[in-house]
Simulated scan of single mutants.
Amino acid sequence: MMKKSKVVLRAYLLGMVFLLLAWQLAASLVQLPIIPEPWLVFERLGEIFADKIAIHAAYSLWRIMAGIMLAVAVGYPLGILMGYFAKVDRYLAPLVYLTYPVPKIALLPILMLLAGIGEMSKIIMIFLIVVFQIVVALRDGIRAIPAETYYPLYSLGARFRQVFRYILVPATLPNFITAIRVAMATAVSVLFFTETFGTQYGMGYFIMDAWLRVNYLEMYTGIVILSLIGLLLFGLLDLMEGRLCRWQMK
């Protein structure tokens, strides 16, 4: 396990080095303020992180985590019920099919009218992006479980609680984590857009404010922090998958 962690860490570091080299090459070729050199950006980041960026990063991270936790609280039991009980799926599947394809960003004006322009509308937007991924992934994951997998527990008189604990949870964990991972990138992108409305905090607000002030160094520091937030979230998901889904890790 330790050896694999070192391999993963080395891969992350190599990826970061490659991106920094590509960034430096682009800055050297363009020679314009719109693409500053990486060392200038990181120098500026060190100067303003504690005083200016930390609060924006904290707000963005809180909104993402709150939206994901709300999506898990609603989507996980809903996906389990739809996958295991055919009658529940029969009634709820049409609702999911009708609402899932709707671009969630198109609902932002409605959310702002209903929930205001503050925190709640942004958290609900993240929730809407993630919850459908969870529901569909869990439902399809349960449907893929062979019927004979249930027979030993059924023969012992197991109830749904035992089936849920010993079959449904282990079988759907990979699908569950993958669903969150797939939705994460979209959630971060949409959060950037929503943070340009009705707030003074968040990485989206910070980046757009720096852009309007033609402060490209600070704009790039915001982009770097937003990327690091994504890296942190994906890293946590990989760690969770490595701990909880060891049987499928190679």
Rank of each mutant, 00 (worst) to 15 (best):
K6L: 15
A11N: 07
Y12G: 00
L14S: 10
G15N: 04
W23C: 07
L29A: 08
P33F: 03
I35G: 03
E43Q: 08
R44M: 01
R44A: 01
K52L: 02
A54T: 00
A57L: 14
A58P: 00
W62H: 03
A66S: 14
M69D: 02
M69K: 02
M69P: 01
Y76R: 06
P77V: 06
G79N: 13
I80Q: 14
F85K: 09
V88N: 07
D89K: 12
L95M: 15
V96K: 08
T99P: 05
V102M: 14
K104V: 06
L108P: 01
P109W: 04
P109V: 05
I110W: 13
M112R: 08
A115I: 02
G118N: 07
E119P: 00
S121T: 12
F132M: 14
Q133D: 13
V135K: 11
V136T: 15
R139T: 14
I145C: 11
L153Q: 06
R165P: 03
L168C: 13
P174E: 09
N175E: 13
T178I: 09
A183G: 15
S189P: 05
F192K: 01
G198V: 03
G198W: 00
F206D: 00
M208K: 05
R213T: 04
T221G: 05
L226V: 09
S227Y: 04
L239R: 09
M240A: 15
M240G: 15
M240V: 15
E241M: 11
K250V: 09
